Computed example of a mutant assay.
Amino acid sequence: MYIKKILLAIVFIGLAIAAYFAYYIYNIMIHSNTAFNNDTAYVYIATNADYNDVRQQLEPLLKDINTFDALAKQKKYVTNIKAGRYAIKKGMNNNDIINSIRSNNLPIMLSFNNQESLESLAGRVSAQIEADSLSLLQAMKDESFLNQNSFTNATALGMYLPNSYEFFWNTSAQQFRARMLKEYNRFWTSERNAKAKAIGLSRDQVIALASIVYEESKQVSEQPRIAGVYMNRIKIGMPLQADPTLKFAAYQLPEYKNTVIKRVLNIHKDIVSPYNTYKNIGLPPGLIAMPDISAVDAVLNYEKHQYLYFAADAKRFGFHKFAKTLSQHNVNAQEYQQYLSSQGINK
């Protein structure tokens, strides 16, 4: 009889402990455990992060990190960390939080435009995804990749078309590069390729010319006309004489580092560089900056006309005056030079 009572007591104690444990688990699963006031908080889990790394990010966001620890161990999350960007909604319980950071990797919208170099592009992209600027730059300049895809150091920037793209935050440098190559090849449709062939330019040459057009004018309505001027010069073997290429050539020299050229002078026309389109006939070996897609399409669909010259319009900022003859161009150019002088812009 006495043994029966002991056994019954053990059973009851066991049931009580099981009930308490079940209640404890139930409690930590259903009660809200967020401590922030915003509607949503984001957690960025790096590639190769361990549970301690995740815990450090979560601790300021949660009311009770210990109850989260208990459930994370119970659900085996501590040994199954997934990299990515995850959202935690205000009022979530521990179970919801674990489910979210385990399986709901959220994409980000990565954007870039008008970067002047691969270095600036790498910096811009690294601020938006996990890959750092050094790994991105190494991937962008990788010689075997460039050779395999018919790029050079001078044309490599042309593979990256300015736009907004959906990426996962934990994208690597190689994954970013592969996606951009895919977008580049998608951009070059059979129609665009046919247009490039029809005007006698390769893809790289189209983008090189587009970079000049874009640096000349940000006015989309004017870009096809400017492209037409340069195409007219190419057809008759006339130097492009594009001021933006002189600036680009100058910025490669030590004496022009960290300077801004506001006025192109005769001294700039003497710079020895393949990008000096006053001295060299034809297009430069690569693009001078990242052009907008509008400028690329402006080259492919350039305006047919007889203009050979253009100068900035002193009365319509951002626009240009076009001329068919050198004498008329000199009048337009002199007007703009006088405007620059009146503003104290001498270099």
Rank of each mutant, 00 (worst) to 15 (best):
L201S: 02
L136Q: 04
D50M: 02
T152V: 04
N147W: 00
E183T: 07
E166R: 12
S342R: 04
S117W: 06
T325V: 11
A208N: 08
I10T: 09
Y251L: 03
R55Q: 11
I65M: 12
N170L: 01
A19D: 07
G200W: 09
A298W: 09
G318W: 03
K73G: 04
K269P: 10
Y165V: 02
A49H: 06
A242E: 10
N33W: 03
M109R: 15
Q337L: 13
S150Q: 14
V260W: 09
I281L: 14
N258D: 14
N94H: 09
I28A: 01
V264P: 08
L110E: 01
D50L: 06
V206P: 03
D297T: 04
I207S: 02
L283H: 09
E116N: 14
T67E: 11
G318S: 10
S117K: 03
N114V: 00
A298G: 05
D50W: 08
E119L: 11
M29F: 04
S342C: 02
S150L: 07
R263H: 09
L121C: 05
F21Y: 09
A196K: 04
L201H: 04
L137P: 01
L110F: 12
Y309I: 05
A139F: 00
N48G: 08
I271K: 12
N37L: 07
S133T: 12
T47F: 05
A70I: 09
P244A: 09
D204V: 00
A18E: 07
D69V: 04
M29H: 10
Q343R: 15
L253N: 10
L201I: 03
G318L: 05
W188M: 11
L121T: 01
L15H: 04
N93K: 07
K4H: 08
E119V: 14
K324C: 04
T189A: 06
D204Y: 00
F317K: 15
L300D: 05
Y309N: 07
Y165Q: 08
M290Q: 15
F319A: 10
Y77Q: 13
V206R: 08
D270K: 14
Y86T: 02
D53W: 01
Y256G: 05
A9Y: 12
Q128Y: 02
A242P: 09
R225G: 01
N185D: 14
I199H: 03
D69P: 06
R85N: 12
M92Q: 15
R85I: 06
Y302M: 02
A16N: 13
K82Q: 15
Q148I: 00
Q56R: 13
A242I: 11
Y251W: 01
R316G: 00
Q138L: 12
Y307M: 07
N37T: 14
K90V: 00
Y44Q: 10
Q148L: 13
L136N: 06
V78Q: 12
T325N: 10
S190W: 00
D142L: 11
S100R: 06
I293Q: 15
P239A: 04
I30K: 13
I108M: 04
P284A: 05
N66L: 08
Q175M: 09
E335N: 15
I199C: 06
I3D: 02
A131W: 01
F21A: 14
E143H: 07
V43P: 12
T152N: 07
A22F: 11
Q56D: 14
Q57V: 02
I98C: 01
N170H: 10
V78G: 02
F187Q: 15
N346R: 10
L8S: 11
Q57E: 12
